[in-house]
Amino acid sequence: MEFMSFIPLFGTLANALLIAAGSTAGLLLRKNLPAKAAELPTQGMALFVITLGVGMAIKTQNPIVAVASIAGGSLIGELLGLEAAFESASRRLEKKFASGGGFLSGFITASLVYCTGSMAVLGSFEEGLGGYPSLLITKGLIDGMMSVAMAASLGFGVILSSIPVFIYQGALTIAAGWLQPFMSEAAVTEMSAAGGLMLMAIGLNLLGLMKIRVMNMLPGFVLAVLLVKLFP
């Protein structure tokens, strides 16, 4: 295992590659399915995302922080126009890679599923503070298996979710020493709860029940960390 110390961001890189490998397998399965046959699996994936989000959200230890971070973060995101900017960038990627429909929902859903859990934060800190990246490798195996089903249901956007996963976890790993004082157990819990609410919104979008601008909620992650300090 000593060779891993010579590979920068080994845990994050392994996580991203496992997502890409699983997604590739899922896309190969998707090619052999008629379009109609993919509808029910997509709805099943939406229900899974909602269930995952509920499981994360109910772990909050401070509902005031969870609600305030989503509300405040959404307001900031709306003012900044994050969703519109993200959709524009995603459409350029979709055109470049000649992907079929559903690119945006697959990209957003997979990116949030892989980035919002506490394992992403704790695993990045483990590696960034000099430990063996066991959490990130474990997370990568889980994400890789999930990406097979997600790519088969949601399409090509899932494979490119490995890019924001690498950027997000890599940034946390590099900044681990500086961020550690702010990232208490309570902060990680409330970040995860806010992420759970976002996943529930993504699931509702996938089911076509409503259109929630989930990307505009992303500043809620930062607010959750700050609000934990104000409402301990």
Rank of each mutant, 00 (worst) to 15 (best):
A110K: 03
M119S: 13
A85V: 08
G102K: 07
A71H: 01
S69C: 08
S99I: 10
L75V: 13
E83V: 02
G100Y: 06
I76H: 00
G81I: 02
F86D: 03
S90D: 00
S74I: 02
G77V: 00
F103I: 00
G117R: 06
L75K: 04
A85C: 04
F103C: 01
E83Y: 03
S69N: 08
K96W: 14
A85P: 04
L75E: 02
I70D: 09
A84K: 13
Y114N: 04
L93A: 06
V121R: 13
K96S: 15
G102T: 12
Y114L: 09
A98I: 08
E94H: 05
G117W: 09
A120M: 12
G81C: 08
Q61D: 09
A84M: 04
V67P: 06
V67M: 03
I76D: 00
A110T: 13
T60D: 01
S88T: 13
A110L: 04
E78H: 10
A84S: 13
I64E: 10
A68V: 15
P63Y: 10
M119C: 15
Q61V: 03
A68R: 06
G73Q: 03
N62M: 14
A110Q: 11
K96M: 05
G81T: 03
A68D: 07
E78L: 06
Y114W: 04
S88D: 04
I64R: 10
P63M: 07
C115N: 09
I76L: 03
S88C: 07
S69I: 12
F107G: 06
G72C: 10
V113G: 04
L104I: 04
T109P: 02
L122D: 10
C115S: 03
E78Y: 09
F86T: 07
A110V: 14
A71L: 05
A110Y: 09
G72D: 10
S90P: 00
L79P: 00
G72M: 11
S88Y: 12
F103V: 01
L79D: 00
I76Y: 00
L93C: 13
G101N: 14
L75N: 01
I64K: 15
A89W: 10
A84G: 13
T116N: 03
A85F: 14
C115W: 09
K96E: 15
F107W: 05
Q61C: 00
L82E: 00
I76N: 00
R91V: 02
A84R: 11
G73S: 10
A89P: 05
R92I: 12
G72T: 03
